[in-house]
């Protein structure tokens, strides 16, 4: 078995990335991996329904964090997107483990046996790392859990070939070779640049800050358009995506703020530190939004008034975030 350290993390993929890098002797925290791999994102797609409510995503497409952080840091890594034959995918994993390479995988959550039962939904963008095999049992490091776990061959095969939207199809990834010197500064700079681009510069109204504003506008219309029950369920979906499903709180805003702070301290950059304070305040605003939204979901009192206020709050949050990204846009590292 490989001597792999399991550390708990807020977000599955950046946690897996940072743990993999730590295994190869690079000291990288979870927020750092998250920021370099630009996990921060927002999209609101009202015409696509996930779990009976509009699709809202606070994260990038699966495997973005790993792929981009490797690219920006200049590390050689392999990503195999798809195996047609499930057995072949397992053979490839066994081969890797024999060579002593901890391997990350994309899996579906629904049939994952050790996962907390309250999150048992059709969500196929979860990531975990396999680092050992003993007989029929695979040793798994899932960053959502406090301790390392084990899975049987059949269970692992089932979750790796979960069906549905964004099906994993046996996707796996691992690190091949680390260069002698890592240029973390340029990686951070590139990561921030890309995140700023994705949050404010994409010319499409449903992505990034524009998406937040659009959602704020829609939020006010929900009680009239869909009725109180459905509106409260839709609002719940926004909050669930932001708070519950492995984001570390406030839709990754805390993690991103921590990344800015760590980078600022590392390179002694005051403007980055200021941006991190702004991000922290935005994140606390998100938490406030959750408090009020959850109270609304529980009581369902005076819906029109409440939703109007929540819509205003969403606009305020979008404005605050826009300020942060505009500040980050001007920063030169």
């Amino acid at each position: 078995m490989i001597n792999y350290t399991h550390r708990q993390a807020g977000h599955c993929e950046s946690g897996a990335t940072s743990n993999l890098l730590n295994y190869y002797g690079i000291n990288m925290s979870e927020p750092m991996a998250f920021g370099i791999g630009n996990g921060l994102y927002f999209s609101y797609i009202p015409f696509l329904k996930v779990q009976f409510a509009p699709m809202i995503s606070f994260r990038n497409l699966p495997n973005t964090v790993f792929h981009r952080s490797m690219k920006y840091l200049g590390i050689e890594a392999t990503v195999i997107k798809k195996f047609r034959d499930p057995k072949e995918a397992m053979v490839a994993l066994d081969r890797n483990l024999e060579k002593g390479i901890p391997t990350g995988m994309q899996v579906g959550v629904f049939n994952l046996t050790f996962f907390p039962p309250e999150y048992r939904m059709h969500y196929n963008m979860h990531n975990l790392v396999c680092y050992g095999k003993e007989g029929d049992l695979y040793h798994i490091s899932d960053t959502v859990m406090e301790t390392a776990q084990v899975l049987t061959y059949e269970d692992l095969l089932r979750v790796r070939y979960a069906k549905g939207v964004f099906a994993p199809e046996g996707k796996m990834y691992w690190i091949d070779k680390i260069p002698n010197e890592l240029d973390i500064k340029s990686a951070v700079s590139m990561g921030i640049k890309k995140t700023v681009y994705e949050m404010i510069k994409i010319p499409f109204p449903l992505i990034g800050v524009k998406g937040l504003k659009w959602m704020g506008r829609d939020l006010r219309k929900w009680p009239k358009k869909h009725g109180v029950d459905k509106a409260s369920f839709y609002l719940g979906q926004v909050l669930r995506m932001a708070e519950d499903f492995g984001t570390g709180g406030a839709g990754f805003r805390f993690i991103y703020g921590d990344f800015l702070k760590e980078a600022g301290e590392k390179f002694n950059h005051t403007e980055l530190l200021e941006a991190s304070q702004m991000m922290g305040k935005t994140a606390n605003k998100w938490r406030e939004f959750t408090y009020i939204g959850a109270r609304n979901c529980k009581n369902r009192s005076k819906p029109e008034e409440d939703y109007g206020m929540l819509g205003d709050m969403m606009h305020e949050i979008a404005g605050m975030e826009e300020q942060v990204y505009k500040k980050l846009d001007k920063i030169k590292l």
């Binding site: 807020g10 907390p116 039962p117 960053t143 959502v144 406090e146 709180g249 406030a250 805390f254 993690i255």
Partner: peptide, 11 residues
């Protein structure tokens, strides 16, 4: 439900 501890961030 709600038996497992998670890592949460705060500011």
């Amino acid at each position: 439900y709600g038996q497992s501890k998670e890592l949460l961030y705060s500011y």
